[in-house]
């Protein structure tokens, strides 16, 4: 069964008394445990797609469903990682991760086990009692990712999660997310405008047109990654030097470039 399904999704905004079409008949399915990245020019509605899967916004027509259930509200089965981290500043790292687990009603011992697991996995050991503002941006986003994974969601929705980080931190986080995603496969919908990031992380990359956003094309990355064995390389720059990677990246670039040209 497909984990996330967009069926004929249109979205219009009302602006200055006029209906503005943002998303035009989006049809997209993300398979169970599949990592799908959406790239597109800014304003194409890719973030709106993610927010509709999260239940933070709703389609004007069409349906969005996760695990066969139509999305009608936000919930812990669809964990979101926000660009601006959206941690609770008044809660420690430990409490931030624990908050959703408590809301799910998990027993204390199980919660402690889950928290310890993700604190270890995201290299947050020793920072359990720190408050978010005491941490660097990269560490804050690790907490947010740990919080999302700890919920054990049916789908993870990430909205440019590394967009607010500096270049070095972003690379480290991308490598860590790849490790996490390979070790711990989940259904992920990942929104980004960074082409390399999409190719490096995703199983499939969805390219969107500029507004009104449509699905322009979908590229299969996973088959290339597996035949060329990208995962034998530890570092992102080694993968990015591979001819197969360069080829995919420039294909997506060209496709996006056409969209920008269409703006003018």
């Amino acid at each position: 069964m497909s984990a996330i399904e967009f069926k004929d999704v249109c979205r219009t905004f009302r602006r200055d008394g006029k209906d503005l079409l943002i998303l035009d008949r989006i049809n997209l399915t993300v398979a169970d445990k599949e990592f799908v990245a959406i790239v597109g020019p800014s304003g194409c509605g890719k973030t709106t797609c993610m927010r509709m899967a999260a239940g933070l916004e709703f389609p004007s027509t069409g349906t969005v469903s996760v695990s066969g259930k139509q999305v009608i509200e936000p919930g812990p089965d669809r964990a979101v990682v926000f660009q601006q981290f959206a941690l609770f500043p008044w809660k420690s790292v430990h409490e931030n991760i624990d908050f959703g687990l408590r809301a799910k009603g998990l027993p204390e011992t199980e919660r402690q086990k889950i928290i310890a697991h993700y604190i270890g996995l995201m290299n947050l050991k020793g920072y359990e009692s720190a408050f978010p503002h005491q941490l660097s941006g990269g560490m804050q986003q690790r907490v947010a990712i740990a919080r999302a994974y700890a919920l054990d969601p049916e789908a993870l929705l990430m909205d440019e999660p590394f967009g607010a980080l500096d270049a070095q931190t972003r690379v480290v986080m991308q490598e860590e997310l790849v490790k996490l995603a390979r070790k711990n496969p989940r259904t992920v919908l990942f929104i980004t405008h960074a082409v390399e990031e999409a190719v490096y992380l995703a199983d499939r990359v969805v390219i969107m047109t500029s507004r009104p956003g449509k699905v322009k094309e979908i590229l299969d990355i996973k088959s290339v990654r597996e035949t060329e064995n990208w995962d034998q390389h530890q570092k992102i720059e080694d993968v990015m030097d591979l001819a197969s990677f360069v080829h995919l990246r420039s294909r997506i670039w060209k496709s996006l470039r056409e969209e920008h040209a269409g703006d003018h």
């Binding site: 964990a79 979101v80 926000f82 959206a86 908050f99 959703g100 809301a103 799910k104 919920l151």
Partner: peptide, 15 residues
Amino acid sequence: IDKPVLEAARMLGIR
């Protein structure tokens, strides 16, 4: 209060 923080609370199922 930051809007994403409120959204995060809803996402986590805080009621």
